[in-house]
Amino acid sequence: MTVLAFPVPAHRVVKMRIRKEHAHLSDEALVALVARSDEAALAELYDRYGRIAFGLALRVLRDRTLAEDAVQDALLTVWRSATRFVPERASARTWILTLVHRRAVDLVRREQHRRTEPYEAIELSAAPDSTDETALLSLERARVQEALKKLSDQQREAIELAYYGGFTQSELAERLGEPLGTIKSRMFNGLARLRDMLQEAVPEEEEWDRTRSTT
């Protein structure tokens, strides 16, 4: 039994939008509805994860149009293959963000738009809106960034270049002038440490999430 750390679900506090009839449902219930071609459920999943998905795709691709393409492709993959989702194996959040990342990395490798400097500030309107939703995103961002900072510089570099830069492990080995085995170890040990740190830091009030994400 592992209790995984999840952010407070943004939909619990997000301001009312059109078609909010599914706002009370868990992510996994929404995916089950999407599997039955419920468009409102897809809309609700987009409202919960579209922004973070776009932020991730934009970080990898550095191009708004390409990033939106990646999010669109990933969400349509959710639409087409939701019948294949098994909640016992991974949360819907992980599934969706994995699809987005996969698509963004495919695109960046194809487009050769990759950038090299991790954490270079994105020169876009990143200033958070003063809504509860973005406040929650900021909290989660701080938590993950804090964990990243605790990695060794070399582990962080390998993970950031791989995840945000879209580099393969072989490209990283070449770029950093290290043996492939060294790169593999840095990624493996770094990701394992991150996992341990992020699992520990579940704030008390996330009861709703905890019951949902216990696997």
Binding site: P7, G55, R64, R143, Q145
Partner: peptide, 13 residues
């Protein structure tokens, strides 16, 4: 890995 998505700024699409 999916948590890493949260570490970057998230401007609205």
């Amino acid at each position: 890995a999916a948590s890493l998505a949260y570490a970057v700024d998230a401007p609205a699409p």
